[in-house]
């Protein structure tokens, strides 16, 4: 895999690095306090002091976009982490042991995957209540099936390969075979799915917050801000545009990375 000569990968890496840098800086420093209101500068257009203008409360949009992108990326990252961790365990065990355990767990898996994910997330939110952490849990649970299936398929494929058989024959225990031999070998297949998963999580978080069940005001998140911005689409278009652009950059960066790693839908 020659990543360096791959244009998709390079472009994705540049965009992702840029976004991550902005987000990391935003964690310690933003030009203004993202939540500080300023009655004198409501709905100001882009200017030198406010590069992306201000919103209806006079808050600096650039600072809010940076903070919102951070919140969104964090939620998406945590979601993928939950989905991946549970998916590794579930997929690893079912793929490795097979048999009736595999049948039962995978049918459950299919049942969860069959629900439209946003709908199921709304149900979970209704049960647990709103807020940042509940969003992470709800989306995390929804991301388990796709990872579990990918991991299961790959583990099942790897386990019949000779190096795994010979490790077992040498007397390596199941857990050693699974974690030392098999799982590291499925990473190349898993990485593109992680990148795609992150994208889906960004969009899911943005949708949930846009619908008002995700991150709650006054905290910033990209979806939340899009919701606020739509009311001022004509009077302050820079609000919606800059927020949307941040979502696009986040998703585009990871999408290109995934594409460059040889994954992505269709290319798989």
């Amino acid at each position: 895999m020659k990543l360096r000569h791959n244009k998709n990968f390079t472009a994705g890496a540049v965009i992702t690095a840029f976004m991550l840098a902005v987000i990391l800086v935003g964690m310690v420093w933003t030009p203004y306090d993202p939540n500080a209101m300023n009655g004198a500068a409501k709905m100001a257009g882009p200017s030198l002091s406010h590069p992306l203008g201000t919103d209806n409360f006079g808050r600096d949009i650039f600072s809010r976009v940076v903070e919102g992108a951070g919140a969104t990326a964090l939620i998406a990252g945590a979601t993928v982490a939950i989905g991946l961790a549970a998916g590794l365990v579930i997929g690893g065990l079912t793929g490795y042991y097979g048999g009736w355990l595999d049948e039962i767990v995978m049918r459950l898996n299919d049942a969860v995957a069959a629900f439209p994910s946003i709908l199921l997330a709304l149900v979970l939110i209704a049960l647990f209540g709103q807020g940042k952490y509940n969003i992470i849990i709800a989306l995390g649970v929804l991301f388990v099936p796709s990872f579990a299936r990918i991991v299961r398929t790959e583990v099942a494929r790897q386990k019949s390969l000779d190096y795994v058989r010979s490790a077992r024959l040498m007397g390596a225990g199941d857990m050693r075979v699974l974690f030392r031999h098999i799982l590291p070998n499925i990473v190349p297949v898993l990485l593109p799915s992680v990148a795609i998963g992150f994208n889906n999580a960004v969009l899911a978080e943005a949708s949930m917050s846009y619908l008002g069940v995700g991150v709650q005001p006054p905290d910033a998140s990209l979806g939340r801000m899009l919701n606020e911005a739509q009311g001022y689409l004509l009077s302050a278009p820079w609000y919606a545009l800059s927020t949307g652009a941040a979502i696009i950059l986040l998703v585009l960066g990871f999408g290109l990375l995934s594409e460059g790693m040889g994954g992505g839908y269709g290319a798989g």
């Binding site: 000779d162 058989r165 010979s166």
Partner: peptide, 12 residues
């Protein structure tokens, strides 16, 4: 045990 396919008998 020595398997048939040396490409897959070793963990890459």
């Amino acid at each position: 045990v020595v398997f048939q396919e040396p490409m897959t008998s070793l963990n890459p």
